[in-house]
Design a protein around this nucleic acid. Structure first.
Lengths: 354, 354
DNA sequence: TGTTAGCACTCTTTTGTTTTGAGTGCTAAC
DNA sequence: GTTAGCACTCAAAACAAAAGAGTGCTAACA
């Protein structure tokens, strides 16, 4: 079902204008602003065709036209002008990014802020998923005889530490033993391969003090599991409230509740991210009630071969896809390069003989 | 300006009903539901008096009455029935609290969720302010020659750790030196007393490697400063959107933007918390534009003598003060006792000879 | 003197009606 | 194939009328 070039142009004009003005667009308007060489009557004929073909819909018999999901889809896939992040924007983004280099999660949040800020929509991301990464080593550091710090280090040198408070004192030898057994049993495994069973083996190996170590091992186990759970980050939660499609509080509430529902968001991101490729989901193409009237642009960022995360932008169907897509592409690209060479980042670098 | 007992009763009836129904309350309604022994005409006279005295206002000439800020104030200070957290609620709260004991910040978030859930309003808290607490010690742990873990331990055994990635390798002696100097210079000081000057002294003491350590020291300094900054936690962000006072999106948006504005929230909490005492701020009694039409119940929780945080609930003037106050009192009380004896908490406890 | 029935009056809310205007589809002419 | 012209449609705005909740005031009552 190839559209004539003129139909394509007119469809594009409708989508562009609807994205800009959020009002059904009529024949006269298109004639005036996009095709002065044509009369409104001609455009009217074309619009009627496009409607019949399913690219446009009317809100009532005598209204202007609004893009259907198919209309948006066609627009995104072949009509829209690829928006190039402009030089100034690149400069601004870079400046923002370079100024604020801290830890990975802080950095991801910062990137999200930029995404939300530059698109004026709501940006979402998961923290990186370490479950496919391997555990390099486990440290247990005694702060004093009542306080131990548990430290997990992954192959990507990501560190997770949690304090453990004890009821009765322990001594150095005990901790050294524990540490050595933990490392021989767990170091080198990928996080998702570490199960209760490993801990049973560990408990056995530690022999005598069976009861004593149960709690501490439980804690180690749950901390490892926490590295598997990825957090949800949000930015620009309230950005959409200014848009006409959210002038109804009930709708606004539904949206806000959706984005604060970690479980649903996790699922949505998971179901709609497509490996390395940026993906655009329009309306409820996916038959997900929650996404009714909402569109999603999702992409993946990469910390290492096995450690990746998902980030995206959510907004009304009527969003500036071009801008959103190019921003996300640019930002995820930058997380990838930055993260992969993080050890060389200028802020934390130290050289003993500097 | 003492009110007659009858006037007090009528004022209480108005506030109670307005809190419940969110509609201006009229004389007949009060007569029927609260004072069947009086006629609506009598009540009308009393209402007119209360209005003249400033306790009530009308929304238009022939409307029912709504409490003024003075009306709410009087209600909160002397009229309302103190709500007692019921046995079931106590049980529920306790169960929720006891089930989910993890780290302090996780715990505070959990308490906030309970506060927001039981009041159906928005709950806010700051993380504990450590600036008045003392730094017990500083650890630098080598994970490998390129990765160091910085660990700060406070007198309350709160631990903050941050990984440092190095560009070129360092050796054990260097780290040992650094650690020893850091500890002799900084351990024992309260966090807010640690300044750039201390770090100048440290750099001097380390002598030769002046340039080399600059970055790492900078990082230690900024991490210490981060312990001074307290985070803002939120729960129940969207709870208010169901209320009639937020049926206007613009208002809802303003509110949501306010609670996501960390700087403003920090300031509001700071300006309105009153040491140990629970404080109720009604409307913009404090002349803060942002709090227009909003009320705030704030209290303090205590981790140790010098380490405290602020938590509160924010909602429309028309809130169930009684319930909110008693919930907050109960919850902050519980953080206090729990935090102060945290080392004995059952979940993480371990005993070598258990 | 405090209370209350009664009534006129006010103002919002609801409901219904009319007008306006943007936009369409169709027809006939170019 | 394009376009001018016109009748028609429908939402939104503007206006009008009616309903209803509530007040204040007056005059009578206990």
């Amino acid at each position: 079902m190839e559209l004539s070039e003129r139909k394509q142009k007119i469809l594009k004009a409708v989508v562009d204008d609807y994205i800009t003005f959020a009002e059904p667009v009529g024949s006269t308007h298109i004639a005036k602003n996009h095709h002065p060489e044509l009369s409104s009557a001609t455009i009217r004929n074309e619009l009627a065709d496009l409607e019949e073909l399913g690219y446009l819909v009317k809100t009532h018999t005598s209204s202007g036209r609004v893009p259907s999901e198919l209309g948006y889809r066609t627009y995104v896939d072949s009509l829209m002008k690829k928006y190039m992040v402009s030089m100034e924007e690149v400069a601004r983004l870079k400046a923002e990014m370079e100024h604020k280099i801290k830890e990975l999660d802080y950095y991801i949040k910062e990137v999200l802020n930029i995404a939300a800020g530059s698109t004026n929509l709501t940006a979402i991301a998961t923290s990186p998923d370490f479950s496919g990464g391997t555990l390099k080593k486990i440290e247990l550091m005694m702060l004093d005889s009542f306080n131990i710090l548990l430290i997990l280090v992954t192959e990507t040198d990501t560190v997770k530490s949690r304090p453990i408070k004890l009821k009765s004192p322990v001594d150095f030898d005990f901790i050294a033993d524990l540490k050595s057994v933990l490392n021989t049993q767990l170091a080198g495994l990928t996080l998702d391969k570490i199960t209760k069973q490993n801990f049973e083996v560990i408990t056995e190996q530690l022999g005598g003090n069976y009861e004593a170590v149960a709690n501490i091992l439980e804690f180690v186990y749950s901390t490892i599991n926490e590295m598997n759970e990825n957090e949800i980050y949000l930015s620009g939660e309230t950005n959409l409230l200014g848009l006409p499609e959210f002038k109804d509080v009930a709708k606004a509430k539904k949206f806000l509740e959706l984005i604060h529902d970690e479980k649903k968001i996790r699922e949505i991101l998971k179901n709609n991210s497509k490996g390395n490729v940026l993906n655009v989901v329009i309306g409820n193409e996916q038959d997900n009630e929650d996404l009714d009237q909402l569109s999603l642009v999702v992409t993946t960022y990469k910390i290492s071969e096995n450690v990746t995360g998902v980030m995206g932008v959510i907004g009304p169907n009527r969003m500036d896809y071009s801008k959103v897509i190019s921003s996300l592409e640019y930002l995820s690209e930058n997380i990838n390069t930055l993260a992969l060479k993080a050890p060389e980042n200028d802020n934390n670098e130290v050289n003993k003989n500097g």
